[in-house]
Amino acid sequence: MQIGYYPGCSQEGTAKEYDKSLREVLKVLDVDPTEINDWSCCGATSAHVTSHKLSLALSARNLALAEKQGLKEIFAPCAACYNRLLTSKNELQEHPEQKYEIETIIEEKINNIPEIYNIVNFFQKIGKDKIAEKKKIDLKNFKAACYYGCLLVRPSGINSDDSEQPNSMEEIVKATGAQTIDWNFKLECCGAAHSIARQDIVVDLSKKILDDAIKHGANVIVVACPMCHSNLDMRQQNIKSKFSDFKEIPVLYLSEILGLALGFDKKQLGIDTHFIEFNLPVRNDVQEVSA
């Protein structure tokens, strides 16, 4: 399967392991991702609070490049990228006069905007059956709390899943044989970009999410957003220093948990670069995993 790939900045920085694991997994699933040439920033969460036009133009440029390259479908593993690209696409399609203005700004023509997938949609497209078929290890002792965060299933209405009670990620995770738990905070805010300037906020918010997952029996959290990952994974140390009774819980990317099921080891998937050590027995035979 051919697909356009918009990595976004995190995949080359804080979320290198997301990119790494994703490429490994896609290889096994017979997907050939074509990176968009000369892709640039999607605008992330800061552009649209600065200037509406800027936020549209940044994403529109990437969409125009993808179109130029002949890509009919693209996917963006980062939830923020996905959200921005989808929002821009929607607005360009709904408002022709807006589109005209943006075209002038980016000096590119936009005709047929490619179909945009987030990572969950994309794995849905590949199919649960395909994942189950290629599965080498059944992750039955995983109790996963799927965490969507604020961006993955929004904006509501133009997104395929329910924005308040999503269930799409669970479907994919179940294909690995892992159990998924029903919990309360799959959409709760992790603190997002406050991570740098207002660590205190992030510590409080992330703790709530992690606690709720643990309370509902999770032994791993699965995310599909680099920002969520960095807050939930990296900030556990800060939480621990503030709340001594806090119990740690590993946080995996969706691609990583799939990678484990497809037989990759932790190092191949970059799980060893996480702050919270992942030491769940993948098989009853622990030796094989820690290799």
Binding site: S156, G157, D162, S163, E164, Q165
Partner: peptide
Amino acid sequence: KPEDSEIKGYGEYGYGK
């Protein structure tokens, strides 16, 4: 979750969960 696409429904209240 309502099938009628115009009405988005109230997942935040749990859909009868």
